[in-house]
Every structure is written in C-alpha cells, then in structure tokens.
Nucleic acid binder design. Structure first.
Ligand SMILES: [Mn+2]
Ligand SMILES: [Mn+2]
Ligand SMILES: [Zn+2]
Ligand SMILES: [Zn+2]
Lengths: 165, 165
DNA sequence: TTTTCATTTGAAATCATTTCAATTTGGATT
DNA sequence: AATCCAAATTGAAATGATTTCAAATGAAAA
C-alpha cells in the first residue's frame, strides 16, 4: 500500500535477489507497515503466512534488503533495530514514552551523499526524540493505548524505557 | 581540555548532583575525550584513578549526566552507546570500517527544540555513516591503524562490523 | 556514636543480535 | 523422474551490552 507499485518480484529481480517465498513475504510485510517494525514485530506479523520463519532469516534478509536499498535500518530506538520500507529521504521521531517511531518531513534533507570533510557519506539519519502528540494528549503517566510496535514495546522493556518518562 | 572552564564540582553543584569521587572522575574522563567513548572505554580509562569503579556505576552515572544535560548519549554505533561531553549542537559521523565517531559541523542545526507536528522535541541527532577519510586513505581491506575507541571497536565485534566493509 | 539514606558495587538476569552447523529448497543436469 | 549442488533457511548455542537487584559502603544528620 506504500510503494507496492511494482510487484515485489520485480523489486528483488532488479537487484539480482532470488525471490524466495520467505523474502517475498518479508518484503511485503515491511513495505506494508508504516510503524517501523522491529524484528520481533515482523516475526509476529508473519507467523501466519510463514509459520516456520526464523528470526535468523529475518535478520539476514533485512540486512540483505538494506544493502540493496530496499529498506532502511533505523537505530533511533536504543533497544532494537527498526526497519523502514519507505526509502525516500525523511526524518524520524521517536517517542520515549510509548516507543512509536513517526515520520517527519522537514526542510533539512537526509538524502545527502558524497563527501564531507573527506569522509564518504553513505547514510544520513535525522533523529528527533521526545514525547509524541498522542502521549502528550493522553496526559498522566501511562502511555496512551497504542497498538502494534508501540504497544509491543510497552509491554516489554521492564524499565528500560517507555515507562513513566 | 574541552569545556573544563568551570571546575567540575561546579558543573555538578549547579544541578544539585552530589560531587562524589566517582562522579567527578567520570565527568572529567568524558569531558576530556573527543573520541565519543563507550562504557567499556571509560571503564578502561578510569581503572587507574578509580580501580573499584563498576560498570553499573558508569551506566547509572552517565544516565544521570545525560538527564541533566552534562553529556549526550549517541546511538549512532549500533553495538553500544557512545557518550559525548561536548553538548553544543553538532552532527556526528560514524565510520562503518573503523568504528570512529567524528564531529561534523554543518548548516542544519541539531539544536532545534519545541514542537513539530505536535510532538515535543527534546533531542535532535544528525547521524552520518560511511567510510572516514583515514580509512579511505589507508585503502586496502584492514582498517588503518587507529587508536582508542576505534581500535578497541576493531579488535572486538567478530564480524558485526568494522571488518572488511 | 547511632541512624538514615544515597551511592556504589558485583553478580545474576535479560534480551537483541550473531555464529554456526545441519537441514531444506529449488533449479540444473542427467 | 532421479540426482546433484549451491544457496537459503532453520534452530540452538554463543555473544555481549545493558538492566536488575540486593548487599556493602559512605557520608551527613541526629
Ligand atoms: Mn520512516
Ligand atoms: Mn560530538
Ligand atoms: Zn508516544
Ligand atoms: Zn574509519
């Protein structure tokens, strides 16, 4: 629903990646989500379609996809990598209360490439952290009732984050 | 040597943080380094001055410092948190070959605060990743002979990163 | 000195990620 | 259809940063 214009097979084929059943399912799942899912979220979301899918495959496949520019690996969440199927340059906001990662569209582009100070730039990430709109609205202490990755993040992580503040 | 204008005791006192022997040593160590050290680097660097210092104290103290704006916690290295005693807004570059983290001074500021899309912004990070100047110079495969955190990162991390590419 | 409370410490637990060897898969060849 | 082979997948074990937790220490107050 995001950028599934081209069939998934083509996205893989163009890059010489064999369109395995697992790879197609993983690619579909990660492109289908705007929530910047973590490995465990993808694993959970795919358990019906690919019951035998291992986390090891998820790790290696997502690294493969990232290497070929099919997904972006976000490191804004200190606990776990989050993946983004939307590869156009944009910034990210991480809510330290509910764990949600949201897209931001700002002036400063993250698409910059080339060299800076002689260093070869391959990736640019603009990370903002704070308290998201809906957490601000749902005042008080406990995070507002979110779903998906945000909620998943909530129930886990003992006090690592996403607790009171 | 960086921003030790004020005595360290004052930096803590202003914020109501009791100037413990450990805290003063940790603060001195993190302010003294431009290498954006990880916990293990600080632990190693302090073993002479504070032989009994535990990593637990380092974790909790650095979190305390970060909460009070004395240091910034960088999440650009996927393996471990790196700490920055230079709190003025600036961007960071992470060399995926040798692990070094370098300061960048660019136009787009990271000092932005306030709200975006209704989200309350508390932290802004500009992360660039690629291959650093000296790694580019020292062509070939193995990383150029670096020191400090970069080297430390090298000898560790089996193939996690900092290997060939 | 005795009490009290914050800080420090080390050991154990947690958990994301990596490693690795074995199994499975699917295409090519016979 | 049967065989072969390299790539892909899998699960279990290892790794290592970070957190948890309860005991030990320290320092100020009574
Ligand atoms: Mn995004
Ligand atoms: Mn810096
Ligand atoms: Zn939130
Ligand atoms: Zn380098």
């Amino acid at each position: 629903m995001i950028s599934n214009e081209k069939p998934l097979r083509a996205l893989l084929g163009e890059r010489g990646i064999k369109p395995t059943y697992q790879r197609l399912a993983i690619l579909a799942e990660v492109l289908d989500r705007r929530s910047h899912p973590a490995i465990k979220d993808l694993h959970f979301g795919l358990k019906t379609k690919v019951p035998t899918l291992s986390k090891t495959t998820l790790y290696s496949t997502l690294e493969l996809f990232a290497r070929h520019g099919l997904v972006r690996t976000l490191r804004i969440d200190p606990v776990e990598a989050r993946y983004d199927g939307w590869t156009a340059p944009h910034h990210h906001f991480h809510c330290e209360r509910c764990g949600a990662i949201l897209d931001l569209n700002l002036a400063c582009p993250t698409g910059r490439r080339g060299c800076i100070d002689g260093h070869e730039i391959r990736e640019v990430h603009g990370y903002f952290r704070g308290v998201c709109r809906s957490c601000l609205a749902g005042a008080a202490s406990s995070a507002s009732p979110k779903r998906g990755a945000a909620r998943a993040a909530l129930v886990k992580h003992p006090s690592r984050r996403y607790q009171h503040a």
